[in-house]
């Protein structure tokens, strides 16, 4: 089963939920945890460093053969992203603008463009335990094609019983890419009015994608009426409420997982996983 963990904004504890869920389920079953927050991946910080296996993620970009190029400018006029300019004596290429669409190659009447690989990021695989694989997508600084790295990272998981994707915060393209093809989405929120606004935005994305979802309220001060009302009105199940407790904050502050330190929390996170599964089956 594939579960995405998302939130309308950063700082809700989304990664903490994803890491605890993955850890808890992996005690008994095989789990892949995929960090899709490629601009700022952080899940590996929750797990002791193992032997990471790093592989490059590359895209195809044009390579102009100056001997064949007639400087006609067709490629540049074709490119909607301004990645090519045919100057007086050569074609300039601005790699950060290139979306790897391949169109310029087709547009070139002289057959002067061939495709070449350019690395934009990496995918790192770590075997945390025999039952837990952590996959981290990382986009290189300044690069824009994060969705490509997300796709690549997601592709590394699949054989496991549970696959958990940690989305980037917000509701933009990378989040939509992360949600692609998942069975269920856990929305992590805080019990503030701002939190509710962001929750509503994230919930909208799951609706548009037709993905069933459930809410985890994090850092709850016990006054979660607004969140519960919103969930009731929209018929979204509340999967768990994690209280704002000094003990929990301390464990997390030290970079540890509450499920690793406290078996009761491990059981609670396993129950969240089971709830996701039965909700998905109900919806199917």
């Amino acid at each position: 089963m594939n579960i995405a963990v998302a939130s309308g904004k950063g700082g809700t504890g989304k990664s903490m939920v994803a890491a605890n869920l993955a850890f808890s389920l992996s005690v008994a079953e095989s789990v892949a945890l995929v960090d899709c927050d490629v601009e700022e991946p952080n899940l590996h910080l929750f797990f002791p460093e193992d032997q990471p296996e790093v592989s490059p993620v590359s895209i195809l970009v044009p390579d102009v053969d100056p001997d064949r190029c007639t400087l006609c400018g067709e490629c540049a006029r074709f490119c909607a992203f301004g990645a090519l300019v045919a100057a007086r004596d050569r074609v300039l290429f601005f790699p950060l603008h290139c979306h790897s669409c391949g169109g310029c190659m087709v547009a070139c009447p002289a057959g002067a463009i061939r495709e070449t690989l350019r690395q934009i990021g990496t995918v790192t695989e770590r075997s945390i335990s025999p039952n837990l694989l952590l996959v981290t997508g990382t986009l290189n600084e300044g690069e824009v094609l994060g969705v490509k790295v997300i796709r690549e990272a997601k592709g590394r998981a699949g054989a496991e019983r549970w696959v958990i994707f940690d989305a980037s915060p917000g509701t933009s393209c990378p989040v939509v890419e992360t949600l692609e093809g998942v069975d269920f989405c856990i929305l992590v929120t805080e019990s503030t009015p701002f939190g509710l606004h962001d929750l509503a935005l994230a919930y909208d994305v799951t609706l548009q994608k037709g993905i069933p979802s459930g809410v985890v309220v994090n850092r709850s001060d016990g006054k979660d009426e607004v969140v519960h009302r919103f969930c009731n009105e929209n018929n979204i199940p509340v999967l768990a409420v994690i209280p704002f407790e000094r003990k929990i904050a301390e464990i997390q502050g030290s970079g540890d997982l509450i499920a690793r330190r406290d078996p009761a929390w491990k059981d609670r996170f396993c129950a969240i996983g089971r709830a996701c599964r039965s909700l998905m089956e109900e919806g199917a």
Binding site: G73, A76, R77, C79, A80, F81, G82, A83, L84, V85, A86, A87, R88, L92, F94, H97
Partner: peptide
């Protein structure tokens, strides 16, 4: 390219060159 998604600078440069 005035309303383009990105790369408007290089596209404008190409326009001037053309």
């Amino acid at each position: 390219a005035a309303e383009g998604m990105g790369g408007v600078g290089p596209r404008a440069a190409q326009f001037l060159l053309d």
